[in-house]
Design a protein around this nucleic acid. Structure first.
Lengths: 112, 112
DNA sequence: CAGAATCCCAACTGATACTG
DNA sequence: CAGTATCAGTTGGGATTCTG
């Protein structure tokens, strides 16, 4: 399961459909940077895990909506918490990385 | 940052050193299944992110302890929440997957 | 519009051997 | 003990093309 959470696309999808159902193309557009292949795979996996439902409307053109299940909603909470943490501490982490990288550059004292 | 959380090894390490600092070999043994290479890389990244401290004791044999920073501890909480969720809903997810896979096998009705 | 299939390169990872 | 270095195998993910 952690592998699914670890998948950044899954997290983004969950966040996006948390409030309302979304169409495939809508997700693709809103996420931006995801290939349709990855979006398809991500949604399949989430569906397989019982986290989202897939509703096909057989019209022309076809239409598919994705929505969180109850299970999906219960997951969305801790995921959201993690997201908030990441957002809140982004600056600290960037700073830490910069510090670390600076130190690693010249392992000897007064280098750069 | 999500990429770090997604890394299963990172999560395990964080969980393990949450209560007390641990030595390299201790982590390797307790995690089991991780190569020393991956453990090294994982710890490096966590250190770079400012989530763990690395304390070298230059004795013979050498000794290195890893410990969570304050930042690391603040991350451990939401991570723990997520872990709890995963554990609590493991059965539901397995069931959902089994159902999905069964359905996928024979897309036609009464197949298996 | 939504998705399946194919190709192909890059990144991650494990096993092994060597060092301070 | 705690790494680093190297090699080879597996996987991930993007771009492209084709359908109902």
């Amino acid at each position: 399961m952690l592998s699914r959470i670890g998948d950044k696309w899954s997290v983004l999808v969950i966040m996006l459909i948390r409030d309302r159902s979304r169409r495939f193309s809508e997700l693709k557009r809103d996420i931006g940077g995801i290939s349709q292949r990855m979006l398809t795979l991500t949604l399949r996996n989430l569906e397989r895990d019982g986290l989202v439902t897939r509703t096909v409307t057989p019209s022309i053109p076809p239409r598919v909506d994705y929505e969180l299940t109850a299970l999906g909603h219960s997951l969305a909470e801790p995921v959201q918490a993690l997201g908030s943490w990441a957002f809140a501490h982004m600056a600290q982490i960037d700073a830490a990385q910069a510090r670390y990288d600076a130190g690693a550059a010249g392992t000897r004292a007064g280098d750069p």
